[in-house]
């Protein structure tokens, strides 16, 4: 059985994207294990990691997402490992979910050091399972080089096997940085370079449903449009006339944050291509407006916070892969196939 430990130099570098892309291109019977969860979804009094749901759906796995993840918080994980120790607990869980698999994707916590106190950091996972570590890096050249060298020192000090580095979310304009700075620096340190994944805007965009979830908002209309992708977030402070003159307001996939009493602005933004409207301060517009939003499938959600707080919260929402993201699944599969040296990995 092939075991790949996917870790990263920093949070939100794209471990799940790389892991899923490799698995989707492998033509092997795959499994997924993420001992330390970091994308908690609490529904019906159970706590799941979003990424385990994504792998389950995309790879057609039938394992209980609870088995994929030991816990989210150090306190809880250490309590779960109290009886048998971290090493044994990991092996026991792994044995259960890897049965009959040809390739196991093992994803670390937020970055390669996360979980060190629990012996569940990337290096410890490499030692426990003996797989190949793939380090996902993202950011500017100096940061990538520094972090990769630091991580490599850790892996080499314990004889973990670093298969190589993948640079993720690389923008076109940063290609020279990769070729001229990062790859030579890796070669100098004798670190294998496994390819890069170009930046894709589609993967960075959240859907209206994620905003409802993250803001704990009340969805008051337009449930049929929850899958719309948000291209642009706007705060509705202008008059309707002035807003209509703004080019950004004409954008497809705009999400508007405004008070429910701004009927003028809500009305002009009610169009099929609007990704959603967030009504702040719990002020709701007339039911007819909500009916119109239902007709046009524009999600309208209500939150108790003021517009400033809401805008700050929306700004912090990071797009997550969702089990229903079929379009993103195909995109990731293609990007990994075209840009990653899969033969070196598999």
């Amino acid at each position: 059985m092939k075991k790949l430990i996917i870790t990263s130099t920093r949070t939100h570098a794209g471990k799940t994207t790389i892991g899923a892309g490799i698995a989707l291109n492998s033509n092997m019977k795959c499994g997924y294990f993420k001992p330390l969860g970091d994308k908690p979804v609490y529904t019906k009094k159970t706590l799941l990691d979003r990424d385990t749901e994504v792998f389950n759906e995309w790879l057609g796995l039938d394992i209980d997402p609870n088995d994929c993840c030991i816990g989210f918080e150090h306190e809880k994980v250490s309590s779960s490992c109290k009886l048998t120790g971290a090493d044994e607990t990991l092996k026991e869980r792994f044995a259960n979910i890897s049965e009959g698999k040809e390739l196991m994707i093992i994803e670390s916590g937020r970055n390669y050091t996360f979980g060190s106190s629990l012996c569940m950091d990337a290096d410890s996972l490499g030692n426990t399972f003996g797989g190949d570590i793939i380090l996902v890096a993202q950011g500017d050249a100096r940061l990538v080089i520094d972090k990769v060298i630091a991580a490599t020192k850790v892996f080499r000090s314990t004889d973990s096997k670093l298969a190589g580095v993948i640079v993720n979310k690389l923008k076109d304009e940063d290609r020279p940085m990769l070729d001229d700075e990062i790859i030579p620096a890796l070669e100098e340190q004798d670190i294998d370079y496994l390819g890069y994944v170009p930046h894709a805007m589609e993967l960075e965009k959240a859907k209206a449903s994620l905003v409802v979830e993250k803001l704990h908002a009340k969805l008051v209309a337009g449930a049929g449009g929850l899958d719309k992708q948000i291209q642009k977030v706007m705060v509705g402070a202008l008059s309707a006339d002035a807003a209509l003159r703004m080019p950004a307001f004409q954008n497809e996939g705009k999400m508007l944050i405004t008070g429910g009493d701004r009927v003028d602005l809500i009305l002009v933004s009610l169009a099929e291509d609007t990704a959603g409207i967030i009504l702040t301060n719990n002020v709701l517009p007339h039911p007819r407006i909500l009916s119109k939003a239902d007709q046009l499938n524009v999600p309208v959600m209500s939150v108790p916070m003021d517009t400033y707080t809401t805008a700050k919260m929306v700004e912090h929402i990071v797009a997550e892969l969702m089990p229903t993201d079929e379009d993103k699944k195909d995109l990731i599969k293609g990007l990994v196939k075209d840009n990653i040296m899969l033969d070196k990995i598999l």
Binding site: G37, D38, P40, Y42, K45, T46, L47, G71, F72, E73, E75, K76, H316
Partner: peptide, 14 residues
């Protein structure tokens, strides 16, 4: 137990 972990995880994330 699950609720405790979910609260801490949600808050720590943000």
């Amino acid at each position: 137990e699950v609720a405790y972990e979910s609260i801490m995880a949600s808050v720590r994330n943000r």
